[in-house]
Design a protein around this nucleic acid. Sequence first.
DNA 1: TTTCAATTGTTACAAATGAAACTAATAAAA
DNA 2: TTTTATTAGTTTCATTTGTAACAATTGAAA
Lengths: 151, 151
Amino acid sequence: MGKQASAPEIETVLKLEEFLPYRLARAAEIMSREFADIYKKHTGMTRPEWRAFATIGQFGTVTATFIGQHSSMHKTKVSRAVVSLEQRGWLARTSDGADRRIEHLALTKKGWRVYAALIEEARKFEADVLQALGEGPSNALISGLDHLEQR
Amino acid sequence: MGKQASAPEIETVLKLEEFLPYRLARAAEIMSREFADIYKKHTGMTRPEWRAFATIGQFGTVTATFIGQHSSMHKTKVSRAVVSLEQRGWLARTSDGADRRIEHLALTKKGWRVYAALIEEARKFEADVLQALGEGPSNALISGLDHLEQR
DNA sequence: TTTCAATTGTTACAAATGAAACTAATAAAA
DNA sequence: TTTTATTAGTTTCATTTGTAACAATTGAAA
């Protein structure tokens, strides 16, 4: 009997377009870049600056360490972003009374105005994406992310 | 009549954990880093090197320009990755007969052995993630990515 | 207490990255 | 053909990033 035809045990190549880490990275990169265009145009912020800024806006008063943990940014990145945001008058530092190593970071009034405008743009951006996607796929994507995070 | 209680027109803060670009970026970053640990341990490759390598493995013979387009990497990144992969004996260049600007890149025998081992690890990694996620959420995530890409 | 370890944030140095300039070659236009 | 424009890939330089060392302070251990 001749050689049997059969599907190969293992595919001999990996199709990157179908490989989850690759797909996720591409999707994230494209979306991040699109959104970055918005806040760059409005404020000139870099990505690390936006992340630090948004974290302070969300939590009111935080330390640099907290920003690093919450946004998984390296502490030197945070440090530099904070310097830059401070120089533009969008955030202020106050030293902790009890522990003099710590600095509390909060937005200034000017910072809050920028923040309010930015998150409006952010919501609009997100809504546009979700609408373009449609309700079903949007829910699927969000649900998938939920589960991925719970892992 | 007194002031009516009502939900605010606009939320005053943006919760980053619920913001799509942020969630996608985090998920992608974590997954990429986890997978990078695998190929780093096995081969010492960097992320750009893995991407270039996997692209060549998938398509057999490609140009540097193609790698850049397909994986959305900057051409200098590709150029450096190719040099590095070549030095380790995993890929070889052959010049095009008709157009001497072009270099055709392909894996060497040694490269193919590394590739075979790596994509097995890749599949295992992906399967582990999807299994941990469960069938329903996996399908939801994949479907969400499908639609996101079609946009 | 005194010493040693841990923590917060910054700085100095080295590696990775991207923009622009560049070389070599081909294609298109005059 | 001669000139000009375009393309492939590399190199140079400036910027960004991360690692490691650091100063300042606090907590824990001896």
